[in-house]
Write a protein that binds this DNA or RNA. Structure first.
Lengths: 214, 214
DNA sequence: CCTCAAAGCGAAGAATTCTTCATATATTGG
DNA sequence: CCAATATATGAAGAATTCTTCGCTTTGAGG
């Protein structure tokens, strides 16, 4: 991942002492909190520093500007999610399609739901960010993982695995985000999650049936 | 729609003369352009006014603040999209499920794609906006339309129409947005669109089969 | 314990932004 | 043609925000 961020978004330096690492953690956490409590347009360097319990100057020691802070935050988060998905995919090599889809939806949903506040904060932060490259890198990483998994399925293969895979991911990612943006009850959410799995499964069945028919 | 916006987001007054109506149009259009050309964080009242060829004061004659401008813009747009979906749904009453899904996906995709620049601009503008109510109103309006349509299907019914419907919408809306956020080739996009239709269809088939099995 | 590098500080300048209001111009109905 | 009303103007004050830099404090290795 980490498609080497453009210079103006790269961190200035990495922490060398334990103290500095804690400071960085505090800054990231503070960023999320401010994002949630005040929104993107009230996310100021001063406020973040204050909340983190450090001075603004400290923040600028690590990041050349506000954007780079948000960039780093997104990078960190996407990395975690990507890793979870990759791990899940590796764990399901050779399994049945049904197991794979189930696991994939669960893993992604879980990763996003674990700390839904953070997820929401990051969806917001990303808007005003030149992070297409970041998203793209994330997408490709996940793509590779899921393709490898699906290709190893014990119970079916697809004419256009690439297309099927891309579709699957677009649908899963998109649906999760959409659900996040609405204010549904927990049970409604759980229901949709399960329906989403059903939907993906029936799609894959149809897609391989398609193949058989040709 | 239009769940009466909170006071601080309501327009100050409506245009009474043709001149004023043109001014408003210019302001909205300028807002979109600035959003696209500069991004949300550079969307300032001054810049919008300048681009619209009016003075800032004029803008403040109609909107009490910047937020209310964005709110009104979103309202206007969501209204158009909702109307298109409603019209499509009315047109498919009594049709087959397959026709309905096809039409729904097409209508929504089309509405969002017609001016993809505008769509993108609005996705951005909405982030920093207290527009949950707006989204909710939109969702309910579309919900009602699609439920009514599906309930009239000539070839199937569902145990939990409500859930099926909500899922369908979450998936369609989410997928469209996700596709928008990536930079896919036109043909890849078209492919996904068609796959999405397939997926929705196979889901509905599975959902009604479920019913039959109980 | 001492020195050098790492980390932290925060007041303050430069820039940007929102919003108002006193004033000026345009339109319309009588 | 003349009020009365609707529109439009834009300079300027108040507020907010980003970022720097000279200085202090802390930590680690010798």
């Amino acid at each position: 991942m980490a498609a080497t961020p453009p210079a103006h978004l790269s961190p200035r330096k990495k922490p060398r002492q334990a103290r500095a690492a804690m400071t960085l953690d505090a800054i990231f956490e503070a960023t999320i909190q401010v994002l949630l409590a005040e929104g993107l347009h009230r996310l100021t360097t001063t406020r973040v520093a204050e909340r983190a319990g450090v001075s603004v100057g400290t923040m600028y020691q690590y990041f050349p500007n506000k954007q780079s802070l948000l960039y780093a935050l997104n990078e960190r988060y996407l990395d975690i999610v990507a890793e979870k998905v990759e791990k899940t995919c590796r764990g399901k090599h050779g399994a049945t399609t049904a197991e794979m889809v189930q696991a994939l939806v669960d893993a992604y949903w879980q990763a996003k739901t674990e700390r839904r506040d953070v997820t929401r904060a990051l969806y917001r932060s990303a808007v005003e960010l030149d992070n297409e490259a970041l998203i793209e890198a994330f997408a490709q990483r996940v793509d590779a993982a899921t393709i490898a998994m699906l290709a190893s399925a014990s119970d079916g293969s697809y004419v256009d695995l690439h297309l099927v895979n891309t579709t699957l991911l677009a649908v899963i990612f998109g649906t999760v985000r959409n659900v996040f943006e609405r204010n549904l009850t927990a049970s409604m959410e759980a229901d949709i999650r399960s329906q989403l799995t059903t939907m993906c499964l029936s799609y894959l069945k149809a897609a391989s049936a398609d193949r058989a028919a040709r």
